[in-house]
Amino acid sequence: MTTAGTKGRARRSGPARTSQAVALPGLLWVPAAVAFALIALPVLGLALRADWPRLPALLFSGPALAALRLSLVTAAISTALCVVLGGPLAVVLARGRLPGMRLLRSIVLLPLVLPPVVGGLALLFLLGRRGLLGARLDLWFGITVPFSTAAVVLAQTFVALPFLVVSVEGALRTAGQRYEAVAATLGAAPGYAFFRVTVPLVLPGLLSGAVLGFARCLGEFGATIAFAGSLEGTTRTLPLLVYLERETDVDAAVALSLLLVVVAVVVIAVARPRSGEGLG
């Protein structure tokens, strides 16, 4: 576990502090400091580079507001989709008895390790106008998915789903099925027990998974640009706008980046206490 976790425990109970006095060889401090600097210094650099007096004007410009609004709306919808679809998937992975469950789990984790651009391309070849499914959607219903806001949502859901699934599955495994067994002996049918016992028990894991997923959606870039393109007001989310402005107006790019940093910090502050336990 992280040192933050150890410290948290030490603060709560006296005995843990004495055991900590034995730990930490001095050798660890140097690489640890370098690692921390690697994360913290670039953010500091960003803050120093920012044109603070012009910041409000840059952030409240038309394109910036449109991108922010699009980012928040699509990330919220994607997160909701993750909960509605990923929650049940986590339950099946944790409790279901299917052959090839291990393979299934590896596939679910794919978006975590896959370059997002590859994910975007894959989505395009499935749902593009000449794609496996896209061609039929176009032919039968006249629906075109790519380069629409729906495509943004799909791309974000694709990359964020594993975060929610892993978090909820972990919570389910930690909770075990003892409480469900007790509920059954009290006369609760499986569905009743699921909503009254299982869901409340894994709620912390579900929330932290959702927050992490939301953060991942907000930051999504690769899959979105490959599958949804960069059309202002329709598919140009904040990260896409940052990348675009980087070429023409560096100050605007930095201001928008800072906005994303603030959002990320807020998300971490909200999700942090539980995420340590949930993702273990």
């Binding site: 007790v182 609760a188 049918a189």
Partner: peptide, 21 residues
């Protein structure tokens, strides 16, 4: 007959009270 239709109660070593209620 599944457990929830048996009318068989269980009191175990651990109380296992639902922690959220």
């Amino acid at each position: 007959v599944p457990p929830h239709r048996r009318g068989v109660g269980l009191l175990a070593q651990q109380a296992l009270l639902f922690p959220h209620l």
